[in-house]
Nucleic acid binder design. Structure first.
Length: 932
DNA sequence: GACATCACG
DNA sequence: GACGTACGTGATGTCC
């Protein structure tokens, strides 16, 4: 399309400074290999331009486009107000030389590049947008700068390229509470701390919008300021009227910037392949050159591989050699290591201990590494071999620094805020040090780096990572410790072996860190790692060390009661079966039920054994008493073995409390997992099981407080899939399952029966899991066709759900991962598999953003919690996915609930603005049963 | 160590 | 049209 710009034309205006700023902060400080020129921002800028150009296909593609830049630091606004943008930070040194290169880049892409001395880019954009509107064409401003929102409307809209979200008049209203024509008035009142626009003191956007909407516009408001009821607000407006008018002039964009070009000069042009590829080659952008060349159908330019600096060894260059590891046996050698650590500013640390339970294990030795291949082990309490070679004596081996002495030297370094301590699963090591009163900080964790980048692809244990990323199989621990009863602890491992094994772990950790850390940016998960993973480590360490008090007598009494009941049931079962057998053996039970007794419905699984799961037995229970008895027996057996018995063994003899361990990198979705023991699956659904929670108690003088998010996953679904009815119901506090039932079946809310509600509830949950007719039918025990009918009606009523499911599957197929609202990536490698695996992967992909976002939310709450409750006599003890359990001194319960609820309900802010509020329910009691 | 089962969100 | 089918976990007991 050509001719004079007008109807049918579509102008894109890109806010160049915003692109540069974003590119600069999104990428690590890259430099051009050949000469060290800082190039990160240019690289990011080019990537964004390329992506932009590639994304511009289809009927909505622009006919005209320009990138608009700021020029010069002095504009007419500085003449109006000398403090305008006065508290802007200076441009970073390494960004300055890149600015002109972004102009060159724009021209290399053959996109119009415009700027004007004395004017901000915003003014040029305003002028062009107004011209485009006047000519009857459309204009899209690619920026998220709120100052540009005053231009929206009448064919002008904005596009946030990062979020790929367009902002129209309603979007502006959402942001400012007024439509675009009054945005300037609101900004004039609210001011802007970034640009140093003064505004009216004490008035923010909300109040400003309120006032403008009440009085019509700013002039009317200032004229009638005397009518304002609130005395403080009235006085502010009267006193600062001039300042407010000045602010309006500052934020009002100049729509009449004199320009020496017209819209027609901005017509979209094809890039000149040679020019573009030439520029990219000059910048030495290998990957982008290749990508662009592919699109243009050209050969990628060859870019000479610059020699890697000799003094920067990378992991791949240094072979693993355990013989080179150093045994640090005296303080002089240790001091030399500490000195080296201070030279580098970081160190990989690993502790060796007497066991895997970090609440009990004792420190045996410490290994350190600052450069690949150069690591040491500092043994502390290794035992000397006894005369009979059987470690009969308690004597320490030679060549060890006394623990106290070594820690005296190491502690300042471990606690030094300027020295980064790198570990693999640092929560373990920091807990070991915490036992000794040493507070290790700051930390980096290779396990969590991997988790942030590779969740869903593979595990994140050191052996896995070493083999995958370093092509090196670590020395196995088993031959050193042995197995079973004859296994020894690490302090009995001979020093020569211990040095090799232990130092290698630090070596591997350092190499992984060197490899992973720069990749974080590239994978785009720096924020995830920095805000959701790393800060959680000390929080969890503290919770685990606190533990929760569990009353042994309560458990013991329950255990005896269960045993008695089970014995009674066993007698009945043998009677009904006609013989004795092992009730706990599904295999034997299946044979009894289906072969000997000849009951119908025996189905064999893959392994050829009959299925005897609860669902099968429940069906059989209508026909026969035996399956019902077995179900009862199984419930008791589960409660006894897993809870009343095993839990007692987990009571720490020193603290009298149970200390679980949370794995941060276990669940692919971002959820935590609790192990040894698992305190996230303590019974609650059955009345009998629920009583186990009576054993979880507060110390005398204290109470337990439980706070849990109400329906968090459904709220997140309502937001992500954008379902207006569900969002409204949550805002209004309406029973969401009843609402769903009402919408689907046309039953008014006040006539809802519990059965219809129950069905709707199953559907709501099913949706979160990637529903299927079969699955819903089985869950509700209704015919499959009927279940499918429900699902069809649900999708019809809430079409956004189907769109979400389809979009998510498509996204996973295209990218190989899905994302939470906070940017956590969950990889879905099997999404394109054949057969049933694809189905699994698709449902997991649908579920992951929902479950994962909820997990992110509570992580954020937990990370903020210590600060929020620091002045209260309270401790955070447990997390159960959507619940936090606290122990608090009596009298402070309400204060704690208020503080913790505040943090939990606002945990998504300010990164994610949820369309639904988050509600938190709270309970207090002497036991977990009472508090829930 | 695999499998079945069942506890939780 | 057949196939297999609700998401994410951990602990326990049986059986080979």
């Amino acid at each position: 399309m050509s001719g004079t710009f007008g109807k049918g034309h579509h102008l894109h205006l890109i806010d160049g400074s915003a692109f540069i700023f974003r590119a600069y902060h999104a990428l690590p400080p890259l430099t051009r290999k050949s000469d060290g020129l800082p190039i990160g921002a240019v690289a990011g800028f080019c990537n964004m331009l390329h992506r932009y150009v590639e994304g511009n296909t289809g009927p909505d593609a622009p006919t005209h486009v320009a990138v608009i830049f700021d020029k010069g630091s002095h504009t007419f606004r500085n003449d109006m107000y000398d403090k305008y943008k006065a508290n802007r930070e200076a441009m970073p040194e390494d960004l300055r030389p890149q600015i002109p290169l972004t102009r060159t880049a724009t021209e290399a892409f053959n996109i119009a590049c415009k700027e004007k001395e004395g004017f901000e880019a915003d003014d040029i954009i305003a002028t062009l947008a107004v011209q485009a509107r006047a000519a009857g064409g459309r204009c899209t401003i690619i920026s998220s700068d709120k100052d540009l929102m005053q231009l929206v409307g009448g064919g002008v809209e904005m596009l946030d390229a990062m979020k790929n979200k367009s902002i129209d008049r309603d979007g502006v209203f959402e942001k400012f509470g007024v439509y675009p024509d009054r945005v300037v008035d609101v900004q004039a009142l609210a001011g802007d701390s970034v640009d140093n626009v003064p505004g009216a003191p004490g008035i923010g956007i909300k109040t400003a919008a309120l006032l403008i909407n009440e009085y019509g516009d700013l002039d009317a408001l200032l004229e009638r300021a005397g009518e304002i009821k609130q005395p403080k607000r009235r006085q502010t407006l009267i006193d600062h009227a001039d300042q407010i008018r000045l602010s309006r002039d500052l934020v009002k964009l100049d729509e009449n910037t004199p320009l020496d070009f017209t819209l027609d000069d901005l017509e979209v042009r094809d890039p000149d392949a040679d020019q573009l590829l030439g520029f990219l080659a000059e910048m030495e952008f290998r990957t982008l050159s290749k990508r662009v060349a592919e699109v243009l159908g050209k050969e990628a330019p060859t870019i000479a591989e610059a020699p890697v600096a000799a003094d920067a060894p990378v992991a791949a260059d240094v072979p693993f050699d355990a013989e080179l590891y150093e045994h640090v046996s005296d303080t002089a050698a240790l001091q030399a290591w500490i000195d080296r650590i201070y030279e580098f500013g970081y160190v990989a640390v690993d502790t060796e201990t007497t066991g895997l339970d970090d609440m009990v294990a004792q420190l045996v030795g410490i290994s350190l590494c600052v450069e690949p291949g150069k690591a040491c082990y500092i043994p502390l309490i290794h035992k000397a071999r006894g005369s009979d070679d059987l470690f009969g004596s308690d004597d320490l081996a030679e060549g060890q620094i006394p623990t106290e002495e070594a820690l005296r030297l190491l502690t300042p370094m471990l606690e030094d805020p300027s020295i980064l301590k790198i570990g693999q699963n640092m929560k373990y090591d920091s807990k070991i040090f915490a036992q000794l009163g040493i507070n290790v900080a700051p930390i980096d964790d290779t396990m969590l780096l991997s988790y942030a980048m590779h969740a869903g692809l593979h595990g994140h244990g050191m052996d896995t990572l070493s083999e995958r990323y370093l092509s090196h199989t670590p020395i196995p621990i088993k031959p050193l410790l042995g197995t079973g009863k004859s296994a020894i602890t690490f302090d009995k491992v001979p020093l020569a072996d211990a040095v090799k094994y232990a130092a290698e772990d630090a070596d591997i950790t350092l190499r992984l860190w060197q490899l992973f850390k720069p990749q974080l940016h590239r994978v785009g998960v720096t924020k995830v790692y920095e805000t959701l993973e790393r800060p959680l480590v000390p929080v969890l360490a503290a919770m685990e060390r606190s533990g929760v008090k569990v009353d042994r007598d309560t458990l013991s009494r329950m255990s005896n009661a269960f045993a008695q009941k089970m014995a009674g049931l066993e007698d009945e079962i043998y009677e009904l079966a006609g013989r004795k057998f092992n009730v706990g053996s599904p295999k034997q039970l299946g044979e009894i039920l289906f072969d000997e007794m000849g009951l119908e419905g025996g189905k064999k699984g893959k392994t050829g054994a009959y299925a005897t799961g609860a669902d099968v037995l429940e069906d059989l229970a209508t026909e026969h008493d035996l399956p019902a008895r077995v179900l009862d027996w199984r419930q008791l057996s589960k409660l006894k073995s897993t809870y009343t018995d095993a839990l007692q063994d987990h009571i720490n003899p020193d603290t009298g409390r149970v200390h679980t361990s949370y794995s941060i990198a276990g669940a692919s979705t971002g959820r935590l997992a609790s192990t040894d023991p698992n305190l996230q699956n303590i019974p609650i659904r059955s009345e009998e099981g629920r009583r186990i929670r009576e054993a979880f108690v507060a110390e005398p003088g204290k109470a337990l407080v439980a706070l849990d998010y109400s329906q968090i996953e459904l709220r997140i679904l309502a937001h992500i899939a954008n379902i207006p009815e569900l969002k409204q119901a949550f805002q209004d506090g309406i029973d969401i399952h009843a609402l769903t039932a009402s919408e689907m079946f046309g039953v008014p809310l006040d006539e809802m029966t519990s059965d219809v509600r129950r069905q709707a509830k199953a559907i709501n949950f099913g949706v979160i899991y990637g529903i299927s007719g079969f699955g819903l039918a089985r869950n509700l025990r209704i015919p499959r066709a009927e279940a499918q009918g429900f699902i069809d009606r649900y999708f019809e009523r809430f079409p956004g759900i189907r769109t979400y499911m389809n979009d998510t599957k498509a996204f996973a197929k295209e990218h190989g991962f899905v994302q939470t609202l906070f940017g956590r990536k969950i990889h879905t490698p099997e999404i394109s598999a054949k057969g049933p695996r694809a189905g699994f992967a698709q449902r997991a992909a649908i579920n992951a953003p929902i479950q994962g976002t909820a997990a992110d939310v509570i992580r954020r709450a937990m990370i903020r919690m210590p600060h929020a409750i620091k002045d209260l006599p309270a401790t955070m003890l447990l997390q159960v996915h959507d619940e936090l359990l606290f122990e608090v001194e009596k009298g402070a319960e309400d204060d704690l609930i208020a503080a913790a609820r505040q943090v939990m309900e606002n945990a998504a802010d300010p990164v994610v603005k949820l369309d639904v509020k988050l509600d938190v329910d709270a309970g207090v009691g002497a036991s977990w049963a009472e508090a829930h």
